[in-house]
Design a protein around this nucleic acid. Sequence first.
DNA 1: TTGTACGCGTTATCAC
DNA 2: GTGATAACGCGTACAA
Lengths: 352, 352
Amino acid sequence: MADLARELGVSMTTISRALSDHHSIGPAMKQKVLKLAKKYNYQPNRLASALRKGKSQLLGIIVPYIEGRFFPSVVHGIETAASKAGYNVIICQSNEDVAQERRNLEILLSAQVAGILVSLSRTTLDFRHFDKVRSRGLPLVFFDRIVEGDNVNAVVLDDQEGGCLSTRHLLQQGCRRIAHLAGPQHLNIYKNRRQGYLDALREAGIPVEEELMVYTNMTQEQGTEAMRSLLALPSPPDAIFAAGDYCALGALQEAQRQGLRVPQDIAISGFSNETFTVITEPSITTIDQRCEEMGQAAVRLLLELVDADGNPFAPRQVSLRPELLVRRSSVRQPDNVAASVQGVAADVLLPQ
Amino acid sequence: MADLARELGVSMTTISRALSDHHSIGPAMKQKVLKLAKKYNYQPNRLASALRKGKSQLLGIIVPYIEGRFFPSVVHGIETAASKAGYNVIICQSNEDVAQERRNLEILLSAQVAGILVSLSRTTLDFRHFDKVRSRGLPLVFFDRIVEGDNVNAVVLDDQEGGCLSTRHLLQQGCRRIAHLAGPQHLNIYKNRRQGYLDALREAGIPVEEELMVYTNMTQEQGTEAMRSLLALPSPPDAIFAAGDYCALGALQEAQRQGLRVPQDIAISGFSNETFTVITEPSITTIDQRCEEMGQAAVRLLLELVDADGNPFAPRQVSLRPELLVRRSSVRQPDNVAASVQGVAADVLLPQ
DNA sequence: TTGTACGCGTTATCAC
DNA sequence: GTGATAACGCGTACAA
């Protein structure tokens, strides 16, 4: 910048104004400066700018890990939305470890990021390390694995709705004894999926049978085992709603091993839209978690907070509408499919 | 820092030295400072530090996108290795677009990153935008999709070796008419996999038959089609080496559709170790691309450059050893498996 | 071992 | 519309 100023015989102030498109700058001068800057291949130093302004153009992300289908997709959505808004993204992994999560938080703070996006580590039970962020007035948004409560900003998938959609779909296919392969109930996502299942049954006036709910850790193996025990019942189910795709896969394989036809003898649906669900024979009906949209929504919310710049802002929880993907593993009555593939788009903003 | 200095009645210099573990600092004073820093919850400002030192603790990554199996895993490896070395990572997506790639590069430069890791966009044919990085003396390492030549630093998988391993394995299983589903030959990865296939055949003294090489775009559909045409040959193959897993999957499904048993009637192997390859029936033999290791190796190389700090450094190409994962789709002679699962670990450093 | 003084590159403030 | 100046928070010659 100093070079440009010297060459043009003006002050650095003028250069700075021309480059940052300040209002009190002559268009003629502006052009001259920009042209010379290009000629000299001027590269602004964002560090210096951020130091002076007290705000960088960086957003921090903390995720448990970057693997599997979910988190990479969310990160993809985040990076895309952020970069569209002129921000860049520093990414940190907690490896499901609170201590690491705390360290990451410190690092992001000291990197002077403009805001932070967090999906909690599985071992995070104490949330005090986030107080420091808030006390600094730094925008903070949780996604997917969130701190419960309505004084935080958060974006989640409406898992309950997802469970409900799946179960309703199975009901519409004529199934009446629908089993549920549930996940660990201390995790809100699995609790909510189960609740959606219960809602749909009640809605249809079908009594809940305890023997049709099997609690698993969502692995393929446990899906297999669960299916085995269910098929051994005096009155086995005619459908399975699994709270995860791997689990659904295990169930599917076991059913086929026992000579059952899917979906004719037993219909199956999963959760998460894992890549392999379109590859199995038959393909598996599932719920898409709208990973990309989640990332985008999280950034949108975060940037609103950034723009509010510390002004009072009522915390908001955004709940994304899950999408039911009907595939062959559950379709017994093709005519009824259309009815169940509704209410797909439109995000919902919960009040408060 | 000023607060701490005042409270302890010393200068900021002393504080700075204590915090950055400078050698000329008394252990007593150091302890006092650290203690007070903790009490006041002092957060160093990395921006200021980086500005002063002219080097940040940030590494920049440019990838085409963060989706699928490969890039997220590499990024995972990169972030893990970087954070272990005290660096953080800014991530950018080029979306397979050169213009975006160029913009990302500018951004990373102006963010004063300590080094840059790049996997080229598919549309990058002109590499001049990287000259600016080198002229700045900024460390630059390519991975996977690299600029060819030996005056760049790069980390790749040895695809040729991968093709060779796969083909040798099929030969050891007693297959003699091995077909190859090749990918677009203008991409070096597919060219090299094909070359490895040719190498192994020559090694075994088996003539190459053009009719056994089918060129595809690596999709599942094209795998299906390719298999159909191969099975229609007067003398169909007894094995398939596909340059990609999706393609192998399509081939597998078509073979089964035509009533063939895999691997007894026809053996199949793929490439990339996609998640679904362990799920199919039978599971698919494939090549693992060592994504994590690639990320780690890239960071290692980059940090060597960073530490060299502009001193002469002979560019290096690191070539990772692919790992053959023998699964059921290819095993006809269980006794021969052990022999083919060798030479798995140990990275290779090519000379120059 | 500690302190003084300056500068990294940018921008906000105030005066002209 | 433009310029001079200070300041953001830290690190480092140099002097003590």
